[in-house]
């Protein structure tokens, strides 16, 4: 059981690190938005799964799962809103230097 918690925590941390790397390295707003909203959601699910396994089946575990479900729905929604807002104000997506489509 403890090994499972450590594994879940490691997986969650891995995806959070991927999200942070995406925020730093990617060239353009849209690519960063794409990277963060996906990796963040998955990392969050793993970390919350670790917490739920650790505190055992109880009302609090249901609450933690509810937090997970809410953030699982909230992050893509806000990413969509931000992406649409950027597109509407005319933020051009990044093109490779060769200009090939």
């Amino acid at each position: 059981m403890t090994v499972l918690v450590v594994l879940l925590l490691a997986a969650g941390l891995f995806f959070h690190a991927v999200a942070a790397l995406g925020v730093l390295r990617l060239p353009d707003f849209y690519t960063r938005l794409h990277a963060v909203s996906k990796a963040e959601t998955l990392g969050m699910l793993f970390t919350l799964a670790a917490i739920i396994v650790w505190i055992g089946p109880s009302l609090t575990a249901v609450k933690v799962a509810l937090v997970g479900v809410f953030v699982f729905m909230a992050t893509p929604t806000s990413a969509h809103a931000i992406g649409r807002a950027a597109l509407r104000t005319g933020l051009k997506p990044w093109r490779r230097r060769g200009g090939s489509p």
Partner: peptide, 17 residues
């Protein structure tokens, strides 16, 4: 400015965890 909104919203999610 949208990078900043993205940073703040990702910050919010991470702080929740």
């Amino acid at each position: 400015v949208f990078d900043r909104i993205l940073g703040v919203s990702a910050l919010g999610t991470t702080t929740t965890i």
